[in-house]
Design a protein around this nucleic acid. Structure first.
Lengths: 235, 235
DNA sequence: AAGTGGTCTAGACCACGCA
DNA sequence: GCGTGGTCTAGACCACTTG
């Protein structure tokens, strides 16, 4: 047929973007089935094999789930297994420890050196800063300082939330995250929030979450008062 | 043509195993080019597309590298970027901190409860136990207790080494690893090796390395005296 | 210019889930 | 039995690398 790839970008990637846009925009709702491969291929005027490759890409990016004999479904970012995708602190059985999350402060500021480096912003670009504390069984175990590029999250202050829900609300599709861990000493605010002596040993978690395009959307610096029954899991 | 998949296992996976065997056995040496897609497809009596899928699988498993216009090459497990694939302790610039590795003890034993669970062995199955210390700039920063299934590593005692090299020597192809981290208190031997006070805060790294088939080949429990310039990186 | 992997096509049949 | 995704085929042309 026609439709040869003349531009540099492969067709299956253009298809991925087009399909991802339908999900991000809400045209295809979480949980719903999308048209089958053949119909999609005809609609976009490509061969089934090319459409299949685009769909496979979307599946590896956790945007859809394909099930033989049933169909292709849009993943719900709020579903079990995807909400806590970036939470590497686990119980000894391997299940994520999330706990109750309490936001203690939200403010708008301009990016400092650390934020501009981690979020790939210019110094002085506007950012949101959020302070949170996580409780497990009424005991604070994690103090978090979160920074978000304000440009991506207009009007955030009325309802800050966890990055997975924010991304969904603002039509951002999350991809991968990197996290670094170290043993450090509790900062003043962290020690106060966690009710431990200042400079107590804590686990420091430094995490950047990115969109599927690789753009940073969240930088989180957490201090964690780990009981031995909690561990951080990496793959 | 003929050659339809009658058995349950897809052809491209059987091809992957066949090609991986050639690498594991040393028939295809690290760094060398392997035949092109078309020739391989003809040799195995499959269509080019199927052979391509098998080769792509091998590439995602880090066994080969494909380069457009050049060819397909067997990865050297000792090459930069693959040796330290499982070392998650990094400097702040993101580069792995390996240090000088010194083996302090090798012994044969039978699996205890922990080992049988982590290595998926029966209690009392034979295991190798290795004690190692890692030095960076003449200062000990990590104490490791390593356990290996003895069945996979006959005659190990004369030359224990890091898992990447052992696997290559014994024809095992490494796949993924999981690692869990926690803040703990230094054990007696660890404190002695690291020259810190007993029960000092250390980072505990609990790692299982597996073959591409998913079989555990190494369990390592490390205690790490982390300077703030070292962190553990997870993805 | 020749050879390689990367992309794309237009079909086929198979295995699975469901009504 | 029907529709779905999973696998497989047998080619085509394109982009890249090297002689």
């Amino acid at each position: 047929m026609s439709r040869v790839q003349l531009a540099t970008r492969p067709i299956y990637m253009q298809l991925r973007d087009a399909l991802a846009e339908r999900i991000a925009s809400g045209q295809w709702k979480p949980g719903a089935a999308i048209p089958n491969e053949g119909d999609l291929a005809r609609e976009f005027g490509v061969s089934p094999g090319t459409m299949r490759k685009a769909l496979s890409l979307l599946e590896t990016e956790h945007l859809i789930t394909r099930r033989q004999g049933r169909g292709t479904f849009v993943n719900d970012p709020a579903s079990e297994g995807l909400v806590d995708r970036f939470c590497n602190v686990r119980g000894l059985e391997g299940k994520p420890i999330v706990g109750r999350v309490e936001v203690s402060e939200v403010s708008e500021a301009t990016a400092n050196e650390m934020e501009s480096e981690r979020l790939q912003l210019r110094i002085e670009d506007p950012v949101w800063r959020i302070r949170r504390v996580r409780y497990e069984a009424d005991s604070a175990f994690m103090y978090e300082e979160v920074s978000l590029p304000a440009e991506l999250f207009p009007d955030l202050s009325d309802n800050p939330s966890r990055i997975v829900f924010l991304a969904h609300r603002y039509g951002l599709l999350l991809g991968k995250a990197e996290e670094r861990l170290a043993v450090g000493k509790a900062s003043g605010p962290a020690a106060a929030a966690l009710r431990v002596a200042p400079a107590s040993p804590v686990m420091v978690l430094d995490r950047v979450v990115r969109t599927i395009d690789g753009r940073p959307v969240e930088w989180r610096l957490a201090q964690c008062h780990l009981a031995t029954r909690y561990v951080a899991q990496m793959h």
